[in-house]
Design a protein around this nucleic acid. Sequence first.
DNA 1: TCTGGGGTCCTAGGACCC
DNA 2: TCTGGGGTCCTAGGACCC
Length: 409
Amino acid sequence: MLLGDGMERQILHVDVNNAFLSWTALDMLKNGESLDIRTIPAVIGGDEKLRHGIVLAKSMSAKSAGIVTGEPLYQARKKCPTLRVFSSNFKVYREYSNQLYELLCEYTDKIERFSIDECFMDMTEFLRGRKLIDIAYEIGRRVREELGFTVNVGVAHNKLLAKMASDFSKPDKVHTLFREEIPEKMWKLPVGDLFMLGKKTVPKLQLLGIKTIGDLARYDYRWICYRFGKFGKMIWEYANGIDTSEVVSEKEAPKGIGNSVTLPRDYESLEELNSVLLALSEQVSFRLRKQKMFAETVNVQLRTSDFRDFSHQKKLNHATCSTSEIYQVAKGILEEMYRQQKIRLIGLRVDHLTDKPIQQVSLFDEKTVNEKQEKLDKAVDALKQKFGYESVMRASGMETSRMMKRKDE
DNA sequence: TCTGGGGTCCTAGGACCC
DNA sequence: TCTGGGGTCCTAGGACCC
């Protein structure tokens, strides 16, 4: 920084205000609804009959009633009896997210989609003689006028500070967080407001007398590193506004692909669980093949009725994308780990993805079976692509599909 | 009808090897 | 004749994010 401001990176973080709720509101208005649900106590929530009943997003007035994201809908209703609940629609969200992304792409090539409703922009080489903060205000105005929803824009010299800044007062605001502003704007905040400090770490820090981000920033660096390892180094640096990570514009290949479902009631037999596992295998392997990737590891996750999570995994000696193979492995894992518990959730995920199959050494007849299976997978995929995921489905798959909300294309 | 679903990264312990 | 020890792979679990 002593080299002068010319060396500083120019970073923006754009964060959609109440994204799912705002986008649902716009979609409803577009479809002839006259009520703007952004103006009433309202939330986006899952289906309580399917035990998916949590708050995914809230309006400003719902927030004023003390409703927080992630809490059960029944609890939210207790806080606000007049609360209206609307269901999510990820297809719609994807469209609005894309509209935002396209608008932001007019400003820079270096742009990172951090989530469906957040982007980082590296403006360092794209200022074209303008001031960063002016661009931030212009983006806020244009999104509001052209897209119909609002964003917060954080302005800073690195990603962490830009993200912290966009989280200051909302909605429809621009905030800066430059180095000299850190003590005034960030150090006074409770330590739990720091990015990456969640509900498990905050109490541990409080035991050390660390209450604010400033307390953490001024705490002995070596002690925090000793106590919290790599994670400690990171949060101490964050508290001091240090973050050298780059804005990454190319979408990286996924490291793993998984689907899970909370069951409409607790399941208590392998047979019931297996039928869900088959549907999950179809879904996961379909997504895997769409990515043209192969997986080396299969992982089965269970959540018991008393909310205890556990998982088992198996590494294969090759990489696969076959529905039946993934299912067979997953079934074996499930049988090995299941101990007659009441199961609330079951999940399947594949990890250690590669873009080429490590060829299985197999006997001729085995290979024939594999090739047959591969052909079947391809034929089914083609139909799913053309007529929709549910066009080709086993009865058990249909049942499971009803429990699940398909999120992406 | 209390508590979603999709990810990433890190850690710790055991097996195994030299 | 107890007590090495570093490195890698695999697994289970946990923390965090949106």
